[in-house]
């Protein structure tokens, strides 16, 4: 690999742009491909690999290529800068997520409680209008306060984010479902809410609950091979 190629890949990654490197395994010769911008057979294969978020081999026109996919990082939006959010930020970052906290309560969402984390004091609907959720986004609602959670939940349900988690008891969940139904969402959309958020692993402490939430996000993202 040429140093310039390494730099170009890193620049794309830092700018949040998807890029695919196709390497000829016989010679080491390579091409950088922006998914969707190249209609050649190799370009199409690269775009497909990026969509599937899967690096792998491709035999095209008699040449044996390897397609390395560099997609933008996954994103986690945490609504509610509560205690559970603190270990969840660290664990999600470790798992490769870019994390941002949204909480209009300035006493909760402080740099002292969340060092080095992107914090917004907007209400979630405003924060999500400024920086919308995408297919590689997950969002969890931890505030316990419908005034804060609900506007964000409406925005999340309208987005194509891959995971929506909502904290709270079964009773809280039922009330939340009813409120979202009143907002006009159908059953199929409401079913996208994972509540109570997290896999049932008997979690008690904030850190254990963060593990269960991150585990459920992973399960939804990577596909359920195990039956819960």
């Amino acid at each position: 690999m040429k140093i310039e190629t390494l730099k170009a890949i890193n620049n794309a990654r830092h700018a949040g742009r998807a890029i695919v490197r196709a390497t000829d395994l016989a010679t080491g010769e390579d091409v950088l491909i922006e998914p969707g911008a190249d209609a050649s057979p190799l370009g199409e294969a690269a775009a497909g690999a990026a969509r599937a978020d899967t690096s792998g081999p491709a035999a095209i026109e008699g040449r044996s290529w390897f397609l390395s996919v560099f997609n933008p990082p996954l994103e986690l939006v945490i609504v509610g800068a509560v205690h559970i959010a603190q270990p969840l930020v660290r664990m999600a970052q470790e798992a490769g997520y870019a994390v941002r906290i949204v909480d209009p309560r300035t006493a909760f969402a402080t740099a002292a409680r969340f060092p080095g984390t992107d914090i917004s004091h907007d209400y979630p609907d405003e924060a999500l209008a400024k920086q919308p959720l995408g297919k590689r986004s997950a969002i969890v609602f931890l505030s316990h306060d419908p005034k804060i959670d609900d506007p964000g939940l409406v925005a999340a349900l309208k987005s194509d984010c891959f995971y929506i988690g909502t904290l709270g008891s079964k009773k809280t969940q039922a009330a939340r479902q009813a409120r979202m139904k009143q907002e006009g969402f159908g059953e199929d959309v409401l079913a996208r809410m994972h509540g109570p958020a997290g896999l049932d692993i008997g979690a008690r402490s904030p850190a254990e609950i963060a593990v269960s939430i991150l585990a459920e996000m992973t399960l939804v993202l990577r596909g359920a091979k195990v039956k819960a």
Binding site: M1, I3, L6, K7, I9, N10, R13, H14, T23, L25, P57, F66, S68, P73, Q93, E94, A95, G96, Y97, A98, V99
Partner: peptide, 28 residues
């Protein structure tokens, strides 16, 4: 980048330090 120590950023940093670098990639 967030999370685990980034492989390609570190490679770039090493090259900037004047070191030699090689990459290994799982292809199959």
């Amino acid at each position: 980048m967030s999370g685990e120590t980034d492989v390609l950023d570190t490679a770039s940093q090493w090259l900037g330090d004047g070191r030699k670098v090689a990459l290994g990639t799982v292809i199959k």
